[in-house]
Amino acid sequence: MIPVKGFARSLYKGAVINNLKFPFRLLKSVWIVKRLFTSIKPDLVIATGGYVSGVPGREAIRRKIPLYIQEQNAWPGITTKILVKHARMLFYAYEDVLPHLHIHPGTRLIQTPNPVRSTLKLTDKPSALNTWNLQNDRKTLFVFGGSQGSLNINREVSKYAEAWVKNLPLQILWQTGPRHYELMRKDFEKKDHIYLHPFIEDMGTAYAAADLIICRAGALTLAELEYVKKPAILIPLPSSAADHQFHNAKAFEKRGIAAVITENRFDEGALDQTVRQLIARPEILEDLINHFPETIEDGLSKIVQHIVEDLPF
């Protein structure tokens, strides 16, 4: 709805062009948001930390509209750092974020899990295995790099996939991403125990079938892992803003519910070693599972309840 884009922190050609356009996009966004606020007269504004929240957040401050922030990551972005000084409440998923913020004494701090999409439906494991034509006598490794897939993760997994399913009691459910599917299919479509999909819509059954997951460390992905209580090997996206995925992943690792491997460790064979260790020694995998809390709070309901009770009218 507004043309604002994040300010690039690198100096490659596209970043320079983006940054030169930034003031004009910002001014246009301010104009659109002012018109929108005048039209709909919002009673409150919820900012979720991304750069797109900046202009509406500042307009809420200017008009003295109650502002609430839901910070999803373990490392705050610039938008949250600016807006939090004027927020009535800060909802945060990771305690690690607090030392990096200058919080007004009047701002209430409420820790709550990130909301999970309502379309994520869980099922029992036998049904999930049947849905994906998987065997119940093998552990299931679920690999995905986000909805578009990750070429770097795909390449690294492809180095070891055949050896894993040959030497370990393992099968692989692998979302390659639409752009990378044909490349991967040429190598693996006729290989036993390796099941490729360009995109998986029914993530609930994929999670339910999994014993171990390899994925990125975006905030919403991690919220889903916690919701389904599945251990993971997290590979943070190196180009994420302020390296926030790395901080998210380390927060999970600190809690004992995930292992973290950065891409600069691929050459060491770190992914291969970690998968083999977790599958060959089930007690280590079980220990990760046991570190999940028995009950997971409903983050969405908690956020809504606190805001409704706080509204000053």
Rank of each mutant, 00 (worst) to 15 (best):
I213G: 05
W174P: 05
I257W: 02
N167G: 07
A128W: 06
I172V: 13
K191H: 12
A219F: 00
T123C: 13
F37N: 03
Y92L: 04
V260C: 01
L90K: 03
F313D: 15
T123V: 14
L122A: 07
T38M: 07
G106Y: 07
P198E: 04
L120N: 10
N136G: 00
G256K: 01
E283L: 04
R185L: 13
M89S: 10
Y207D: 05
I110E: 07
K34Q: 10
I303D: 00
F142M: 10
F7Q: 09
V304D: 01
I103M: 10
V97C: 11
K186N: 14
T140E: 06
F22R: 07
D243M: 02
W31V: 11
G106K: 12
F37Y: 15
Y68C: 07
K302P: 01
L120T: 06
A163R: 13
N114K: 05
P3S: 04
N136I: 06
P198F: 05
Q175R: 09
L196K: 12
A60K: 08
F313K: 14
I65P: 06
E224I: 03
H100W: 08
I82R: 13
R25Y: 14
L26K: 09
Y207I: 01
V308T: 11
L222Q: 05
T131S: 12
L20T: 07
L300A: 15
M184S: 14
E189Q: 11
E309Y: 11
A93Q: 13
E297P: 08
I61N: 03
A223I: 09
Q148E: 14
E294P: 03
G299H: 00
R108D: 14
G218C: 10
F37R: 08
V4H: 09
Y160E: 03
F246G: 08
A15H: 14
I46C: 06
G269I: 08
F142S: 00
D187P: 02
L36T: 10
P238K: 04
N248M: 06
V52T: 14
V33D: 07
K13N: 10
Q148F: 04
P66L: 03
D211M: 09
A251D: 08
Q245I: 07
P126T: 01
L44A: 15
P23N: 11
G218E: 06
Q148I: 09
